[in-house]
Design a protein around this nucleic acid. Structure first.
Lengths: 299, 299
DNA sequence: ATTGGGCGTTGCCGAAAACGCGACACGCGG
DNA sequence: CCGCGTGTCGCGTTTTCGGCAACGCCCAAT
């Protein structure tokens, strides 16, 4: 892609904030990178970056320019994808941004299923928080987002929204295991292990117990889902997760998960979305449809 | 604009339908043009043009590619415009496609008024038929369209739609001059001069008289508005025009125009539009707003 | 106050890409 | 059959690009 190299360079400079680091990332010398930037600025008639002592920073004009540049790159990728699709080659690339809860079970299964049919399609998976989803889409850092968040109106185009109940996870032989109509108060009779703030479900839990008298500090916090599971399996502690992030019995026999009464904790929403009014590359579009189908059949 | 030269070349090839003529138009040799095309096709992984013995023709993949290319060019122009606007330079270019009826009076007055404020903005004005407006916008051949057409839903984004009555134009001393509540039957008592088919108002007239008993062939047809005016001024013939295309008394004192009763001839619609979901360059956007304001104040 | 390391920038020169020229092969119409 | 116009390719020249090294600058640590 000869005519896009300038755009790639400018994108790299904007991302890294420095000409030299962008050059290193692109396996080039700083002088080459700086010349391309200078040429582009000359063509545009304006500087795009403000030069500081520790690097460069996007200008007012640069903010507009970087949007243009990324739009160009994304649209070229889309054209390539459509051309390849027209030729029946079925290759492409999809980058997904999703909440931590989707990482252990749901997303890998879906990607594996998709790649069974389309082995030539490669994936990027990036953990992303709900609040940053819109920005990541806008900057073309990801094609698709799949995040759980509060019931607010997202700032991106929602392709599908599915309500997500919160479930409690505990050891298989836990006294509460298998109980139906589980109340939050019952759970808080046992030690509580929670994911760190910022993870899916944590905000929902904090909100639920904020006005309860039985609220207490968790005995364990972790940003490792695996560790939380292991801890819960080995002790009588209880942890929480949105339903799609909890393992089924066939995925982890040490643990069972029980739905919590809806009056106690407001469920979140699982949002599947893309950039506003963007025509996705073919591979990304197909994967989006598969995800939507899978989510619809989940209930 | 170094990185767009390939796009310009491909656009030229698509427009002219031949590598050699595109080369001539760009003041280059055919070999250079052919190499750029070949390189681009190699990068894309597919041929964009089908080679025939009398030139080249867009391929299935080429139809997608040419849209992409023109989108790129238009968006780059928009970025340039916004950057220039940010610097306060206020230069730019606007290309307008409009019906023939707008050419004599309305559009030149508006452009002159706009250029009074923004002398650095240049204009292209192209006569266009209503049916081709959508295609011209889609191919980025024009930024704005201002056309009269039947009351159907246009295939572009309508910024403003204003109903247009049809008026009869006759000599100043014509027996019908100054009559209010003029009926079409009265006009057809005199010789009729009409613009050629395809011009604004002609289709409306043909439709109006198609079921009337007094319909008759026009004594004069012309594609020159000036000639029609001169003929009407010198004889007792009558011609028709949508209201905005008829001269006011201060513009041509030889001619007066009288509105025709709305029961006789269905007025057309004057559509001011742009390409669907396109962010126009600043200059074009401002001119669009001025046109909308002028049209709204017309009544 | 000095010094060192990071940054963007620039002159220079070899490498690579683009260009123009001319010639070729092919299809079509006279 | 030939002439015309088309796309295409090889070759030498011109233009552009990229790496190297050096410079000036700013800031922080000495």
């Amino acid at each position: 892609m000869k005519h896009l190299v300038t755009f790639r360079i400018i994108d790299a400079i904007a991302r890294t904030g420095s000409i030299r680091s962008a050059a290193e990332q692109l396996s080039q010398t700083p002088s080459a990178v700086q010349r391309r930037l200078q040429n582009y600025e000359t063509e545009l008639g304006h500087e795009i970056f403000e030069r500081t002592s520790k690097g460069v920073r996007l200008n007012a004009a640069g903010e507009m320019a970087i949007g243009h540049v990324r739009h160009m790159l994304a649209e070229t990728e889309q054209l390539n994808s459509r051309i390849a699709d027209l030729a029946g080659v079925r290759r492409g690339h999809v980058s997904v941004g999703c909440s931590q809860a989707l990482m252990p079970y749901f997303l890998p299964a879906e990607i594996a299923r998709y790649q069974d049919d389309h082995p030539e399609v490669s994936f990027d998976v990036e953990v992303i928080e709900h609040g940053q989803a819109g920005a990541a889409l806008e900057a073309f850092r990801v094609d698709i987002v799949l995040v759980v968040g509060e019931k607010a109106v997202p700032d991106y185009e929602v392709y599908l929204a599915a309500p997500q109940r919160v479930v409690a996870m505990m050891a298989r032989d836990h006294p509460l295991a298998g109980r139906s109509g589980l109340r939050l108060r019952d759970c808080y009779a046992y030690p509580i292990a929670l994911p760190k703030p910022g993870f899916s479900g944590r905000a929902l839990l904090d909100q639920a117990v904020s006005h309860k008298t039985f609220g207490k500090k968790p005995v364990l916090q972790s940003n490792s889902f695996e560790y939380l599971k292991a801890h819960v399996a080995a002790t009588d502690a209880i942890t929480f997760q949105v339903r799609i992030g909890a393992p089924a019995v066939e995925q982890d026999s040490r643990i069972v998960s029980c739905e919590i009464d809806g009056r106690d904790v407001a469920g979140g929403m699982l949002y599947l979305g893309q950039r506003r009014s963007r025509a996705l590359p073919v591979a990304a579009s197909r994967f989006l449809e598969q995800l939507a189908l899978a989510l619809a059949q989940l209930d």
